[in-house]
């Protein structure tokens, strides 16, 4: 685990910044995001709708908390959980052979593929380091 404060600060800015950016893009188009979730063909329609309304705000709120150092551990805990869930979802989607856009960055989203697993893993690594750091 990384203990260097400057590196951890950089991790916080990267993870927080990425999620704030991703969240804002999705807040601008909640229906588009609901459709992206529905395209994974895992969640029932009502749940896709609810997740699409709430999750982008969770990303922005948590991201802002992480950047400003408020509830640092709780925010990184939630991000670690989200990223872990994204990883499982991406892996399952690849295994099922479903060809979809990830929906991660609204209309700027990339395809669900192995590169996305790498991106999510790096962010998860950053997030876990923030979570386990004790002053």
């Amino acid at each position: 685990m990384i203990r260097n404060k400057h590196i951890l600060l950089a991790f916080r800015f990267v993870v927080g910044g990425v999620f704030i950016w991703a969240g804002i893009l999705k807040i601008l188009d909640p229906l588009g995001f609901a459709q992206s979730i529905a395209n994974y063909r895992i969640f029932p329609s009502a749940l896709s709708f609810f997740l699409a309304l709430v999750m982008p705000w969770l990303e922005v709120v948590c991201g802002a908390f992480l950047v400003f150092g408020i509830f640092r551990r709780a925010s990184s805990f939630l991000f670690s959980g989200l990223l872990g869930a994204f990883l499982v979802l991406v892996a399952v989607t690849i295994l099922r052979g479903i060809d979809v856009d990830c929906g991660c960055f609204g209309s700027l989203s990339q395809k669900v593929d192995y590169k996305l697993i790498l991106t999510d893993s790096i962010l998860l690594f950053f997030s876990l380091n923030i979570f386990f750091y004790r002053r």
């Binding site: 309304l53 705000w57 969770l58 908390f65 805990f77």
Partner: peptide, 16 residues
């Protein structure tokens, strides 16, 4: 804290 963040985000999402 986790519950607070989840509740706060949900309220924002629902209101918006």
């Amino acid at each position: 804290q986790v519950v607070f963040i989840l509740a706060f985000s949900s309220i924002l999402g629902i209101v918006a």
